[in-house]
Nucleic acid binder design. Sequence first.
DNA 1: ATTGTAATCCGAAACGTTTTGGAAGTCAAA
DNA 2: TTTGACTTCCAAAACGTTTCGGATTACAAT
Lengths: 359, 359
Amino acid sequence: MTITLKDIAKHVGLSVTTVSRALAGYDDVAKGTRQRVRAAAKEMGYYPNITARHLQKQRTDTLAFVVPTPGPRFSDPFFSELLAGIGNEAGRHHFDLLVSTQSPDSEDERETYRRIVHGRRADGVLVVRTRQNDERIRFLSEQSFPFVAFGRSDLGSSFPYVDEDSYAGTQLITQHMADLGHRRIGLVSAPAGLMFCQLRVAGYRDTLRANGLEPDQALIIGGDLTQRGGFQAAQTLLALDPRPTAIIACNDLMALGAMSAAQKLGLVIGQDLSVGGFDDIPLAEHAHPPLTTVRQPIYEIGQRITRMLVQLIQGQLAPETRQDASRSSREGETAAETQVILTPQLIIRDSSGPPPDGG
Amino acid sequence: MTITLKDIAKHVGLSVTTVSRALAGYDDVAKGTRQRVRAAAKEMGYYPNITARHLQKQRTDTLAFVVPTPGPRFSDPFFSELLAGIGNEAGRHHFDLLVSTQSPDSEDERETYRRIVHGRRADGVLVVRTRQNDERIRFLSEQSFPFVAFGRSDLGSSFPYVDEDSYAGTQLITQHMADLGHRRIGLVSAPAGLMFCQLRVAGYRDTLRANGLEPDQALIIGGDLTQRGGFQAAQTLLALDPRPTAIIACNDLMALGAMSAAQKLGLVIGQDLSVGGFDDIPLAEHAHPPLTTVRQPIYEIGQRITRMLVQLIQGQLAPETRQDASRSSREGETAAETQVILTPQLIIRDSSGPPPDGG
DNA sequence: ATTGTAATCCGAAACGTTTTGGAAGTCAAA
DNA sequence: TTTGACTTCCAAAACGTTTCGGATTACAAT
């Protein structure tokens, strides 16, 4: 049987109120009493009932994280690293983390959000893989429920987020390929509904044009962000005649799949074909050859959105602050930013090189 | 402002009790009343407060999953797939999932378990990556708190778990290498405290001996289960003279790292060097070359331990049942098993082949 | 002696739900 | 008319905590 405040109160001959306040360290309880209560609590093995505390305090000290899992074999190193960042940061702030896996844009996903918000299951929620016309964001905004997103959206409303500049990132890697002399550069894109997909495709397209290259629709193949998807998309691209001399994938996992597909055809990556990715997951560095990619600080992003969410909940972050250049950073004590766009970094490794002769 | 039962009661002119019972579908409320209440609830946008319900029902309908994360860059596809299995199955049974990331064997990890158990934060907990003399299992057993483990342990106590037969699995792949003619077979092992590490190393050793090969301590290198770790361990192994002609890694991620290390030296995997893994993560299939490995149905294991835990909580699983051959499966309705050992399957792909001449 | 103040404690209410143990009313059988 | 059964409803307690608004005592200042 678990020990409650009432048990302690009975044991030390005080009221529940006094025991509670003694343990909480209020100064309207005598020092001696406090010590006596503390000792009794320890001796009896008291541990506060977390649920009861939640109900009384009208907050749950819990963050919710609804993971969009497209299929059962959700084998994504990107995600586990993000979760580590979120989980560790939540722990640092004494918040629990509620995780739910739901297939994106499903009725179950919608119901999950309703449950969290209306059932007061958590104090805030983290949204990842933002989508065009994202109903999750619309819903949370409407309900003015605290949330922070990893990624922007195209809704009119302003909300707190952290995002990498996908457009600039793809510009970097596309320009890199162009600088190496590539003229036929394929793209393995992502599900079109994802915001970052739009931005990355645009960055790719615009950079091609800026280099006098006309984007060729046949060189853009949809991918599902898995290695298998990258493998298959690359097979399609490599069957073209003439085939592209470079392939850029919208994430590293697909880039690795693309490398395998090319290697299966006997192509040497970095010579016969250049491959570029996005994310810089640890796998990229120790691939063969090491993958040229755009770095995204996944763990830190996880930490950051979590920290922002905690601040938002605790009222240390203005919920609807627009980015505002006129905001003076007076007194050194600048308010925390609510909309962060990270500058991407190109990591050049051996998977990219000049095109082969006649490329 | 959120709507409570009291608000509905006031609105329809009934007591809170009746409203509650109407919504719960008890038959001691008149049909007309029930409909009226239901309509009002819907109209007013009522959603039950989950925390209050938890407190009253003295259960949380929540499972806890404490993920052992060794470092910040926890980039492990194995884990995300396991989580998908756990999360989806928990959802199917209307359980929430509480996830905490803690570094293994740390004081924070211990405190997390205490909090979950004593604070009644969850109704049961999932334990993964079981360790020798596993204090988590000891603690949960002592407190007789419901839990199911992925992996066995060496404590005397009997508890419910699902595990792959790591010993047999390593036997399979080691024998496969021996059958191909390999005599010098290296092993990239895992952190020694992990139960499956012990079993896999034993399976490797015993199979070597069964083939008349004496295990060489120099051919066993510790790894940390990351690709980088496999990369480094393989570098050490490949610097030996004579070098091994085959390398077996205790998981696929390290096997992929080992492949990269070998390829960096110009070796052709499957010809100059054979490589074997363990897990069969999706990355293995589309690696170059595709990786020979031992299959572990990760997603299904996640589902299975979750289902067992739910049954345990709901009293449908005898908490301390030993595996008992004499248990008659009468009436077709066999009780669910509490200790499951899965038979591993060898997946032969192109990363393994006969040793090069003179190997 | 009175007043004021500080120190220490506590009863009751509250958080929102479910459950317990009837109460009140209706109706048919005896 | 009484009894019993059935239907429908509800007040109060309970889950375990925190907080609100005093109450009581002691003691110093007036």
